[in-house]
């Protein structure tokens, strides 16, 4: 890491990065635990996830303040400036990830009121695993700065979208089969949507990291959409 004449400048930059890492760890944990709470019908764990969100909110504000202060006092240039602006953007994305995790946790009670069959959650678990892998890989790249690994991430984002569309269809089928499924399945649809958006935020972070490290925007080449907006079930 390059050094500046003013030592505390380095330390401030480093502090920002470490705060982001702490936020990342919390966001990963929240997403993981919220899905776990959903699958195991664990209302206690869900409550804990909801409480944990405070940390992300506070830290995001702190990162924002620190970043603005740093820009004002040090007037960073080139990669330092990108680093600071990147920190603001990444912290916003992570804070949103936390919100989405919290939202899943909030639905736990509603979904698990009746005893739901395990098969209902299997797809959601697989989707969450993909999104979590995405988030972990992106944050690992942010730590190691090896942006050439980011290419694989777009593949996975496509997988997440495809999986989400498939899950959407499956849940619709369950609702058609039995109207009693409508309540839990609607909540699960929102949970799936949340997880899919967590994947999108991870992709956003990937783009920011690429920009911070390389100094140029990540090349655009992806058809970025899931196809769930076109899904209809026709009665056969």
């Amino acid at each position: 890491m390059n050094t500046h004449i003013v030592r505390s400048y380095d330390e401030e930059l480093k502090y920002l990065r470490n705060r982001l890492a702490a936020m990342g760890g919390h966001a990963e944990r929240m997403v993981d635990q919220s899905v776990l709470a959903l699958v195991n019908a664990d209302a206690g764990l869900a409550r804990k996830v909801i409480e944990d969100d405070v940390f992300l909110d506070e830290t995001q504000r702190e990162v924002d303040d620190k970043a603005i202060l740093l820009i004002a006092r040090r007037q960073p240039m080139a990669d330092d400036l990108r680093e600071v602006v990147g920190a603001i953007r990444i912290s916003a994305d992570l804070e949103r990830v936390g919100d989405l995790g919290k939202n899943i946790a909030k639905r736990v009670v509603a979904v698990t009121e009746g005893r739901q069959p395990l098969s209902l959650f299997r797809g959601l678990q697989a989707l969450a695993e993909l999104a979590l892998t995405q988030l972990k890989d992106v944050l690992d790249v942010y730590a190691s700065r090896s942006v050439d690994r980011l290419a694989f991430m777009r593949d996975r984002d496509d997988q997440i979208d495809a999986m989400y569309t498939s899950l959407f269809r499956e849940l619709l089928t369950y609702m058609m089969e039995d109207p009693r499924n409508i309540t839990p399945c609607t909540h699960l649809l929102f949970c799936a949507k949340n997880i899919e958006r967590i994947g999108d935020h991870a992709t956003n972070i990937a783009e920011t990291v690429y920009y911070v490290v390389k100094g140029e925007q990540m090349p655009i080449e992806r058809p970025k959409e899931d196809k769930s907006h076109g899904v209809v079930l026709s009665k056969e």
Binding site: L20, A21, G24, E28, D140, V141
Partner: peptide, 15 residues
């Protein structure tokens, strides 16, 4: 991806 020079706080992010 763990190599000398990496910030371990950024790699091991669990609270």
């Amino acid at each position: 991806a763990v190599a000398p020079g990496l910030s371990i706080l950024m790699k091991f992010r669990a609270p």
